[in-house]
């Protein structure tokens, strides 16, 4: 309940934050975004950084914009900011569907999308959706800016490609305004984190699946795409049978021996849930495809 002592700096620009990271490189330093992963870890004594650099109020990290068919979401947007953006909901339907299910009301009012992605909690709701949205994570460090595709960003549990003095500044998502996006989640009844969560982004023409991107979190130690499910969908009519068949392929290319296995659910059960929730994400897509207006 009582965090250990630390020094606190509030950055007002990205550059200042990077300088602070560099200045404090010898200390255990953490960036403070919404704080909804970090502060609980500090309060329970698991985490004890020497320095916190608050980047929550850096103006350049806020804002949601659409530019040339690309949606840009500043890393320090709170979940509720993203959900409140018509642009985000139109152009990144899978991502916003996943954000709706993050934590609870209070958490969504405070936690940030960038903090979430950089924290790389495998049981978070966003990795699968980031993958299916083909998101690019833009990071800035002492050597300038670089862009990392979501599928190269995650290494494993809490491990990303972010360098020690780099800051995730924004998320770029190619517009998927013509697609339906859904997210189906089996939350842990205690923590609310995803035992499994499945994000789906489909374009459907006249009942036939033109493109499909399916991604999952919670099951493995980082978000994964479910290629075999995608392959089983493309070119097929989006009906009950196709969905059941496709969902049956959910674990085909995953090493089930490496599935997350903990108090909340065993690896075997996660594998089962992955199929069930893939099916539910796709069923939800059917509902949305049938009533596209409702998605707005």
């Amino acid at each position: 309940m009582y965090p250990d002592e630390f020094d606190y700096y509030e950055a007002t620009t990205i550059e200042e934050a990077i300088d602070l990271l560099e200045d404090n490189a010898m200390e255990e330093t953490e960036l403070l975004a919404g704080g909804h992963s970090l502060l609980p870890a500090m309060k329970t004594g698991l985490s004890s950084p020497d320095v916190l650099i608050d980047i929550g109020e850096v103006d350049a990290l806020h804002g949601v914009a659409v530019d040339d068919e690309t949606l840009e979401i500043g890393a320090m947007n709170r979940y509720s900011d993203v959900l409140g953006s018509e642009d985000a909901r139109e152009h990144a339907p899978a991502l916003t569907a996943a954000i709706e299910r993050v934590g609870d009301r209070q958490v969504r009012n405070r936690g940030t999308i960038g903090g979430n992605l950089a924290h790389a909690d495998p049981a978070s709701d966003l990795p699968g959706a980031a993958l299916v949205s083909d998101a690019t994570l833009v990071v800035q460090g002492p050597d300038g800016e670089r862009s990392i595709p979501a599928d190269e960003f995650y290494y494993g549990m809490y491990a990303t490609d972010l360098g020690p003095a780099e800051i995730l500044t924004k998320i770029e998502v190619p517009s998927a305004a013509d697609a339906v996006g859904t997210y189906a989640k089996k939350p842990s009844p205690s923590s609310g984190y995803a035992m499994v969560g499945v994000a789906a982004l489909l374009t459907v023409d006249d009942g036939t699946v033109e493109s499909a991107r399916i991604g999952a979190n919670g099951a493995m130690d980082h978000g994964v795409r479910l290629d075999p499910v995608e392959e089983a969908l493309v070119g097929e009519s989006l009906d009950e049978e196709t969905i059941a068949t496709a969902a049956g392929h959910a674990t085909d290319e995953l090493d089930t021996a490496l599935m997350m296995d903990d108090l909340q659910a065993s690896g075997e059960f996660r594998a089962q849930l992955l199929e069930v929730y893939t099916e539910r994400a796709l069923e939800a897509a059917v509902d949305r495809a049938a009533a596209p207006a409702a998605a707005d």
Binding site: E100, A184, K185, R280, A284
Partner: peptide, 14 residues
């Protein structure tokens, strides 16, 4: 309410 409530994802019984 659609303005403030998102359509249900469906399937998320809990």
């Amino acid at each position: 309410a659609g303005d403030v409530r998102w359509p249900e994802d469906g399937g998320e019984s809990e």
